[in-house]
């Protein structure tokens, strides 16, 4: 497929034929340009996917494989799954995955509920103090998390939540950025939408749940996905809060892999592959939302 496409004219027609014509340079030039374009892109794919493939290969190499071979060999000669079972036996990776999943789930629920409610109130209800409330969220958005992390730790400690998953979730349970994103989404809805409902006697809760929320599900999805990925990948904060192995999230647990399996890169590779499977699956399934989220201004600080 690659070969066929790269040989063709510069504007590869989309399957539906909807691509707009791109009349650029005269006929001869784009051909060379196209070859260069694909060469660069393929190089990038090798650079980006290569290390991942190498990890996969390492994780599958068995006792019969020479680890350090010149030239290095990508395809294992003695493929095996024992590295995976070894890692799972010696390190509670599945427990870490479970903890991370729980944290991510709580973060998603917290952000959806908290940001949607607050966003609606800020955008569509009028009350005294609305400006101040908006200001609090904007100010919070501008504070880099690293500069308050020590004080956050003191708060979590005084709440008695150190070494708990709840302590990991709470500071990010409702992100200011998400509140403001939801506020903008609700503010973009036309006034007429609610006016009819008001005439029918709907109160604020009913208008919120039945009329406005269904209109902004796209933004809610984006908020949910970024909350999930953010919580799943977070490292600094769980590293600070968690101290016992049972409560480790995946990132904190993985960080210890290198110390545990210093002598065997195959086991570390198996650990990273186990860690990558869920998030890459998640990404591939939902990739259109990732791109949409970034384009709609969901720029994280």
């Amino acid at each position: 497929m690659t070969v066929a496409t790269s040989d063709r004219a510069p504007a590869p027609a989309a399957p539906d034929g909807a691509s707009r014509p791109t009349p650029r340079a005269p006929r001869r030039r784009p051909r060379r340009g196209t070859v260069a374009r694909y060469a660069v892109l393929c190089l990038m794919v090798v650079l980006l996917a290569g290390p991942l493939l190498w990890q996969l290969s390492l994780s599958l190499k068995g006792a019969g494989d020479t680890l350090y071979e010149r030239p290095p060999r990508l395809i294992p000669t003695d493929p095996t799954l024992t590295n995976f079972t070894d890692v799972l036996d010696r390190v509670p990776v599945l427990r870490y995955v479970g903890n991370s999943a729980l944290v991510a789930l709580m973060a998603v629920v917290g952000n959806i509920v908290g940001a949607t409610l607050a966003g609606y109130a800020l955008a569509r209800l009028r009350f005294r103090g609305r400006g101040i409330a908006t200001g609090v969220f904007v100010a919070a958005l501008l504070v880099p998390i690293e500069t308050v992390i020590v004080s956050q730790f003191l708060v979590v400690r005084s709440l008695g939540l150190t070494d708990t998953l709840l302590g990991v979730v709470l500071p990010g349970a409702v992100a200011a950025l998400n509140v403001l994103l939801m506020r903008n989404a609700f503010a973009g809805l036309p006034d007429e939408l609610e006016e009819a409902a008001v005439i029918d006697g709907a109160n604020a809760w009913q208008r919120f749940l039945r009329i406005c929320v269904p209109q902004v599900t796209g933004v809610i999805t984006v908020v949910a996905i970024f909350a999930f990925v953010g919580a799943w990948n977070d490292f600094l904060w769980p590293l600070i809060v968690l101290s016992s192995e049972e409560s480790y999230t995946l990132t904190v647990g993985l960080n210890r892999l290198r110390g545990t399996f210093y002598d065997d890169p195959r086991l570390i590779a198996a650990g990273t592959v186990i860690a990558l499977i869920p998030i890459i699956t998640f990404f591939v399934l939902l990739q259109r939302f990732f791109f949409r989220g970034l384009e709609s201004g969901g720029i994280k600080g």
């Binding site: 917290g110 409610l117 800020l122 409330a133 500071p171 409702v174 200011a176 509140v179």
Partner: peptide, 13 residues
């Protein structure tokens, strides 16, 4: 409606 969001943001930021 603002309570959850404000509580988290004020307590932790």
């Amino acid at each position: 409606m603002l309570l959850p969001g404000l509580a988290v943001v004020i307590t932790f930021i």
